[in-house]
Design a protein around this nucleic acid. Sequence first.
DNA 1: TTCATATTTCCAAAATAATGGAAATATATT
DNA 2: AATATATTTCCATTATTTTGGAAATATGAA
Lengths: 103, 103
Amino acid sequence: MRLAALAQETRLAVFRLLVQTGPDGLCAGDIQARLKLAPATLSFHLKELSTAGLLKARQQGRFIYYAPDFKAMNALLGYLTENCCDGGECEVDCASPAASTEC
Amino acid sequence: MRLAALAQETRLAVFRLLVQTGPDGLCAGDIQARLKLAPATLSFHLKELSTAGLLKARQQGRFIYYAPDFKAMNALLGYLTENCCDGGECEVDCASPAASTEC
DNA sequence: TTCATATTTCCAAAATAATGGAAATATATT
DNA sequence: AATATATTTCCATTATTTTGGAAATATGAA
């Protein structure tokens, strides 16, 4: 479950760091250094995020680079508003979050 | 943490049911009947969602109606894409999820 | 091949969260 | 006041998740 994958401080920090970094991503070691995590801990969370489909990994020599899967991220955002107000019109501002146009 | 509040099957089911129902919401008993939850269990999750700021409760007689706080929901969606690609332009489609215009 | 570095897997301990029965509270109706 | 219904709180049990040390694996460099 993707939401669950993001619903954990450490994993959210990892994901957001990668979102901010962009498509090139960061290798595990860099993430570890930036967020000060034990290797095993980071590895666990990277696996969770990858399994959830939120991250894409690519090996480059000894390094493994992780980057967000932006498509998956979008799907997740869409999911939350799906069928809002029973599919009908609604006066409430339940779409187009401010940041969604800033990317 | 709002994400964490939604990252639990039962709570997500409750929230989505309420999103689909709209601003009028449903009383606890109706939610309970629809999702077949033990009263104590539902109460626990409603409190989690409320504490997270995702639900608004209004008492009406003996009943307590719960409805989504759509503003909070939007803030949450925005949060995820915040600072995407370091604030710069990015070719990746990391905004405007399909469903966000359908509400 | 040997050594160094990057990352993961294994595993067990610790922490946190979910569940639901039973009792408590709150409101309404008679 | 007595009774009925809606919902919550209390609490103990169970289930799940997180953590990180140590060992294993993988890749590259000398």
